[in-house]
Design a protein around this nucleic acid. Structure first.
Length: 766
RNA sequence: GCCCAGAUGGCGGAAUUGGUAGACGCAGCAGACUCAAAAUCUGCCGUUCGCAAGGAUGUGCAGGUUCGAUUCCUGUUCUGGGCACCA
């Protein structure tokens, strides 16, 4: 990039309009200016962003440490604060992240979530001039302010009744009139206390404020009011929208709430009670778009907007660049030094940059990272933020391929050999975080030629989350006082997670709670019936929710095989379920029953070398078939159940034959490796079962000649008749109609129709 | 609010492509063995009417398609995950 700037300057990049210069100009720029320009093109770049700032705690907070706008710890107010941050330019990968989805084996819902998150939309940017005559002298507007909006629906341009700016939009201060100044300032203070989540969530609670300014619709020159409202977010599009109440429900509700007159451009397709967001209506009152179907009008409108020079076609993404610095944690340090406000990357020979050893760490002054407290660190002008968790989780699978390499993160030959991760098992909670970051990371490494593939995971299996039962205590707003669940509605409270280990059923152990965190040492409690009762919610099991349980006791009591089988037996791997050990006895009994096929309590060894009969081979091969199919489909719960059926049936036949049992053990190895190996050795094998050949299915043992057909009358099963599988419809009809039960239902009448599905069922319609 | 899932007996779940709803397991009940217990074994086990034979009903809720729907379609409720500093 630098050599490009040195030779040809930047005219054709088109990414940042401000970055147009010649090669000569580039060379004349100061280092700082050059670095500033380069920052616009770096994959990892520094810019100003907003963080959760808690003045009372003197620290930046993570989103999950903020409850209802106050800090979880102590209940102090949290506001947004601007701070220099590092970002990864994931937006530059947006199209490739979308395209790559065609090449990976992920579930459709996972792909859908990623697509929606990336949120590619095609529309246009359009300029609305301000009606400057309206601005009074108190606003220092030069008179040529333009509001740039982004819209995917330029076809509705004649239905625009107002513009809405994001409260953080840079023009807000400039265009606000003197009369509206106070209202706007109050509203901005309110918005500052609101998280993005709250701003998007509470659609019922409509808020906004008129700036006093008016803009001009470039097509019909109508004067339209300019509002600000929290439902428009600064980070998306241009941070400004044109509001069309008859075609957008949020705009509609906003117009109704603030009694802004609504222009109807689709006649009967708009009923005045709710917006019509379809693109199927025919346009009216829309000048050159009259008579066009909305979806066809979009193209026409864009062409007109471009030809009139009012704006231009624009592809937009909902996804934002990924925040890559943290002030809250002790993560990997940035190899960056700040020199006179310019970020300079450390030379590779100076790396690795290691974190200093410290006794304890806390937030730095002004909410910087903990490194800001370390004189040694700041003296070197080193960056004081640290990297987030995904700095590691985005590429660890590559390092795993070559973990001892001292010179490179992973030798190219090694990654070429191992290639992509074949199957990646992870929960859907990572859908738009980790799984997008690692995909982007892989593409970046691929672009650098460091690896030979640009998608990390060939196949993704979403295992369901194990859920835990969380317990909550309710803190009265602004106090260090907690109110019991049954009476909490009489107060304004914030719900805080409490450690499930301090709760007996629902009753909180107050002494343990006070000792838990220093903040709670002097807490007061409002009890019911002398007890503090906690609230309950089922949530994903997570350390941050204090609802984890330790499996060590179970492994101790039942062994790892039982634990492993039980986890599989709980249900489909992709389904979330609360952790509950109620049924673990069942799989443990299965293991013991398996053992008894080989050993007798009184006599020891009972397995033998006798030849198996057809019935026994049939049981084995039915199991082989089922296990193969289930394993292939990751249907581990049904596989465990077929192992149980197999062992039950062999027990019933008193089958202790080695030639059957040894094959069963091989099948079982991936499911219960320890007992399989142990019994394998008992059978006299000296090599490990892991090297045994997998049994081959022999269909000949599974051939059936007849079937117990269910016979339905009008879809309800009334009888079962054993019929030869080779029987044709006419034979089947004869057999069925002569059946006593069928005759009873027919009651002398002829059936209307007989449906026969070979190998499945018979349905007699009467 | 938006995006993505899910909902079947007392409980976890099964039903692979629209074809016998409840496999397998837990819990429960009755029994066998035992001085007793544990372990093990046998039988019963959706709801409801019935002595029984048998009938009715039943897969979150309301509709629809079909000879036939847990499965497909429309709407809806509830639960869970995510919403950018947990990753």
């Amino acid at each position: 990039m630098i050599s490009r700037f040195e030779t040809t300057g930047a005219k054709d990049l088109g990414k940042y309009e401000s970055d147009v210069f010649s090669a000569e100009e580039w060379k004349s720029f100061s280092t700082a200016k050059q670095q500033e320009i380069l920052m616009n093109y770096r994959l990892a770049f520094s810019a100003i962003g907003e963080v959760n700032w808690c003045e009372a705690l003197g620290t930046v907070l993570a989103n999950d440490e903020v409850v209802n706008g106050v800090s979880e710890r102590g209940g102090h107010p949290v506001v947004k604060k601007k701070m220099r941050q590092w970002y990864l330019r994931i937006t530059d990968f947006a199209d490739r992240l979308l395209d790559g989805l065609h090449t990976v084996d992920f579930s459709d819902s996972m792909k859908e979530m990623q697509r929606n998150w990336i949120g590619k939309s095609e529309g246009c940017e359009m300029d609305f001039n301000l009606n400057t005559a309206n601005l009074d002298s108190s606003s220092n507007t030069p008179g040529s302010e333009v509001i740039k909006v982004y819209t995917t629906r330029p076809d509705t341009i004649f239905g625009v009744d107002f513009l809405v700016l994001a409260p953080e939009h840079e023009l807000v201060n400039k265009i606000t009139t003197a009369e509206q100044r106070k209202n706007i300032d109050d509203y901005l203070t309110y918005v500052k206390s609101r998280s993005d989540r709250e701003r998007m969530s509470e659609a019922k609670h409509i808020t906004g404020c008129f700036t006093g300014a008016y803009a001009i619709n470039p097509f019909n020159h109508k004067k339209i009011p300019v509002w600000i409202a929290e439902y428009v977010l600064g980070g998306y599009g241009t941070g400004a929208i044109m509001a069309v109440p008859c075609g957008d429900q949020r705009d509609f509700l906003f117009a109704k709430h603030f009694q802004i007159p609504i222009t109807n451009i689709i006649g009967d397709h708009f009923n005045g009670l709710e917006a019509n967001a379809t693109k199927e209506a025919v346009l009216q009152n829309s000048d050159f778009l009259n008579g066009l179907l909305m979806k066809d009008a979009i193209k026409v409108a864009i062409e007109k907007i471009e030809s009139e020079g009012l704006g231009k076609r624009k592809v937009n993404y909902k996804m934002r660049d990924a925040g890559f610095s943290r002030q809250r944690y002790w993560g990997e340090p940035f190899p960056i030094k700040w020199e006179a406000g310019v970020a300079i990357a450390m030379n590779e020979t100076q790396l690795p940059l290691s974190l200093p050893h410290v006794e304890k760490y806390g937030p730095g002054p002004e909410g910087e990272g903990p490194l800001a407290n370390i004189a040694d660190w700041t003296a070197q002008q080193l960056e004081t933020s640290t990297m987030p968790g995904y700095a590691g989780s985005s590429w660890y699978f590559l390092r795993y391929m070559d973990p001892h390499n001292e010179t490179s993160f992973c030798d190219r030959h090694v990654s070429d050999y191992w290639n992509q991760v074949d199957v990646y098992v992870g929960g859907t909670e990572h859908a738009v975080g980790h799984l997008l970051y690692s995909r982007m990371w892989t593409k970046a490494l691929y672009d650098l030629g460091l690896i030979g593939f640009d998608e990390p995971f060939k196949k993704l299996v979403n295992q369901g989350m194990i859920q835990g039962s969380s317990r909550f205590a309710y803190r009265i707003k602004g106090k260090n006082e907690f109110v019991s669940f049954g009476i909490k509605d009489q107060y304004q409270t914030d719900a805080l997670h409490v450690d499930v280990n301090m709760v007996d059923g629902l009753e909180l152990d107050l002494a343990a709670f006070k000792k838990w965190k220093p903040d709670f040492e002097n807490a007061h409690f409002i009890l019911e019936d002398g007890k503090y009762i906690c609230g309950v919610e089922v949530e994903k099991m997570s350390k941050s929710k204090f609802n984890t349980v330790n499996p060590d006791d179970l492994v101790e009591k039942y062994g790892a095989d039982t634990f492993r089988l039980y986890e599989m037996f709980l249900g489909p791997v992709d389904q979330s379920k609360p952790w509950d050990t109620k049924g673990i006895e069942g799989v443990h009994r299965f293991i013991r029953k398996l053992w008894r096929l080989f050993n007798d309590e009184a006599n020891g060894k009972i397995w033998n070398e006798a030849q198996a009969n057809d019935a026994e081979w049939k049981i084995l091969h039915r199991t082989i078939k089922k296990i193969e199919a289930d394993t292939e489909h990751f249907s581990f719960n049904t596989a465990v159940s077929s192992f149980m059926i197999c062992v039950n049936e062999l027990s019933e036949l008193k089958c202790h034959k080695k030639e059957i049992l040894e094959k069963l053990l091989i099948l079982l190895t991936p499911y219960a490796p320890h007992i399989a190996e142990e019994l394998w050795q008992q059978l006299g094998n000296t090599e490990t079962i892991l090297d045994a050949n997998y049994p081959v299915l022999e269909e000949k043992y599974l051939i059936e000649t007849s079937k117990e057909y269910p016979i339905s009358i009008n879809g309800k099963v009334r009888a079962n008749i054993n019929i030869d599988l080779s029987a044709q419809q006419s034979e089947v009809e004869q057999i069925v109609l002569s059946n006593e039960i069928v005759q009873k239902w027919l009651d002398g009448n002829a059936p209307k129709k007989i449906i026969f599905v070979k190998g499945k069922m018979v349905n007699v319609v009467i």
